[in-house]
Design a protein around this nucleic acid. Structure first.
Length: 575
RNA sequence: CGGAAUGUAGCGCAGCUUGGUAGCGCACCGUGUUCGGGUCGCGGGGGCCGCAGGUUCAAAUCCUGUCAUUCCGACCA
């Protein structure tokens, strides 16, 4: 490729709407151009990168025994009603009408479609196991698109779906996919962690996310991990806690109601009573699927909302507003403001207690009276708790649940995920086969996603410096740029052209920067675009050398043109 | 969906307070100059000042509405 012909425009400055480094770099280097919020044109350089990621994914999926197909991007409402997700999925599902007023949606994922397809084709246990995948654009109408390709509304995704007759079969395929994912991200030059996670709206039980670990702003998820291999997303992490004072006996000799004026926060209450937060039972009101839920937890800890939501089997959760709390109090015949709420009298409302509550004794708890708390209370003094569930948000410094060492926390970008769906879709959609005994059974399903465009952006997050991108070789748009410093210098151009021809003949993807620009411009663009290698034909040609620069390490070698060509062929083609 | 800001040329911005010929830098075209880290000069082209109303002799500028974009929060792969 001649640089003079390339459809690309690098910018002198970063676009003002870019926040994270991958977005800034990709926009400035001419890889992407925004069409509208969260929707981007993939320019030729970007498309080359995306195709490379796709091909790695494709090769590894095929190698793992999966088969590629392509499903429709526009989907009918009816299938989503069958699975129950038409109402459950929320506003991210982009809904639209066709000319006959039939209601459709743009595919944010394809469980419904693949399940419907499978039930038409897979009639017998003999047709399984099977794993089907596709690579295509998805659309999710995100509330707030941002971070360029990391969180677009339209994005490219690989999604795979497996069908098995047994849980053992699913387990096996799940491991198979986990290994394929490891290979895929390794080949893309990305270091990832496989972490336990919540399965969110897709549903199911077991799931893991593949996270690119980054210290940049773009890491959206907290990942807790330990030297011993344990790692989990914050919405799924569990931990052991250090010993804490959980018996308030030395502060309270009897159980009684005490005046605690103006103690609206735990901090104020601690100060007023001169006690640690570990002997306060905190009561929080959440709204899960529009209905109130009370969460109880030791007051020095915080509730992890996804865990709480799962504990009551909901699909949507938020903390209650003070108006909603007031309404709830009025309904139950109390008159208390936040800060004095407690489980007392909360009949017909789910009360979920965290594991930390179990061992508390002689503690302080709200009793739904403003400016009062019950002190020296015990579990027998509050409504019977039927279920103790871990709903606690893990914090750095908590101890690893496996080995007991302190957990560390880091930020990660989720680039892939794997879920065990079980019969979550096959059952409601009546997607069944006949087993060996001629009995009808639902498929046991799994699903496996990789964000293709997000992976490319994550690679930029992980590989850049102040000058621009440093693409890993496997997904770089081109391997090498050859820069004749002055295109009017016949020797420089001749050597550059010869190297270009040889590299191209050997299968190296090479760009010849034949633009009539000053050296500085070409060097800046080469760094910005992020070619892994740059070969400069310039003044040292008088001594018979070209300059050979490795973008990743900034290492510069003086080689003869033939040596440079050979070295590149060795590194890129023969690797 | 709550809070905040911004819409002026492909990109980055000024002008708006105090209404009166639409500007600057980069990019683009022509030309000369320079030639190893975003040269320098001269000459050009390109804008319904987001959109719609209103006030006014006159609106990028003032008023109202609307749309879009971005940031913080909540949510989310």
């Amino acid at each position: 490729m001649k640089m003079s012909k390339m459809f690309v425009q690098t910018l002198r400055e970063f676009p003002s709407d870019a926040e994270v480094v991958s977005h800034k770099m990709l926009a400035r280097a001419g890889f992407i151009k925004k069409l509208t919020s969260g929707v981007y044109n993939y320019m030729p350089l970007m498309w080359r990168v995306l195709k490379k990621v796709e091909n790695i994914v494709r090769e590894e999926m095929d190698r793992a025994g999966a088969q590629e197909l392509l499903m429709p991007f526009v989907q009918p409402k009816e299938l989503w009603e069958e699975s129950g997700r038409w109402d459950a999925y929320g506003k991210e599902l982009m809904r639209l009408k066709d000319r006959h007023d039939r209601i459709m949606c743009l595919g944010p994922t394809h469980e419904e479609i693949i399940t419907a397809l499978a039930r038409d084709v897979i009639k017998s246990y003999k047709q399984m196991p099977v794993n089907l995948y596709q690579i295509q654009s998805k659309f999710r109408d995100e509330v707030r698109p941002r971070y360029g390709l990391l969180r677009g509304r339209e994005f490219i995704m690989k999604d795979a779906y497996s069908f098995d007759t047994t849980q053992e079969g699913l387990d096996k395929e799940y491991q198979n996919m986990a290994q394929a994912y490891k290979r895929i991200f390794d080949r893309c030059g990305l270091e990832t962690k496989m972490v336990q996670s919540d399965s969110g709206a897709i549903g199911g039980s077991v799931s893991h996310e593949f996270m690119v670990i980054t210290d940049g702003d773009a890491g959206e998820n907290d990942v807790f991990y330990c030297d011993c291999d344990y790692s989990a997303n914050s919405n799924h992490a569990v931990s052991k806690l250090p010993q804490a004072e959980v018996d308030g006996a030395k502060y309270f000799s009897e159980t009684k109601i005490m005046d605690t004026p103006n103690t609206h926060s735990i901090e104020e209450l601690c100060k007023f009573l001169n006690i640690p937060a570990t002997i306060i039972l905190k009561s929080l009101v959440y709204i899960v699927d529009k209905k109130p839920v009370i969460a109880l937890i030791r007051a020095d800890k915080n509730v992890e909302e996804t865990k709480l939501m799962n504990a009551v089997g909901g699909i949507d959760i938020r903390i209650a507003s003070s108006a909603e709390i007031a309404e709830l109090m009025a309904e139950k015949g109390f008159d208390a403001v936040p800060g004095f709420i407690g489980p007392k009298g909360m009949t017909d409302i789910p009360i979920i207690a965290d594991e930390t509550v179990r061992e508390m004794k002689n503690f302080v708890v709200g009793i739904n009276q403003t400016d009062k708390h019950l002190v020296g209370a015990n579990l027998s003094d509050i409504p019977t708790i039927e279920n103790y569930v871990d709903i606690r948000l893990v914090e750095a410094g908590d101890f690893c649940p496996i080995c007991g060492k302190p957990l560390k926390v880091t930020k990660g970008i989720e680039v892939g995920n794997i879920f065990q769906l079980g019969t979550k879709y096959s059952k409601p959609m009546n997607a069944v086969y006949l087993d060996e005994n001629g009995k009808t059974q639902p498929y046991i399903m799994g699903c496996y996603g990789i964000g293709i465009s997000r992976t490319a952006a994550a690679a930029v997050e992980a590989h850049n410096d102040e000058h621009g991108i440093k693409w890993p070789i496997a997904i770089a748009p081109y391997h090498v740029v050859i820069v004749p410093v002055n295109i009017k210098d016949e020797l420089q151009m001749k050597v550059a052209q010869e190297m270009y021809d040889k590299l191209q003949a050997a299968g190296v993807e090479v760009v010849l920067d034949d633009r009539d620009e000053r050296a500085g411009v070409k060097f800046k663009d080469a760094d910005l675009i992020g070619f892994p290698f740059r070969v400069t034909a310039g003044k040292s040609l008088s001594e018979g050398f070209v300059e050979y620069k490795i973008r990743e390490t900034e290492e510069v070698l003086k080689l003869t043109p033939d040596e440079a060509v050979q070295d590149l062929i060795n590194k890129i083609i023969k690797k």
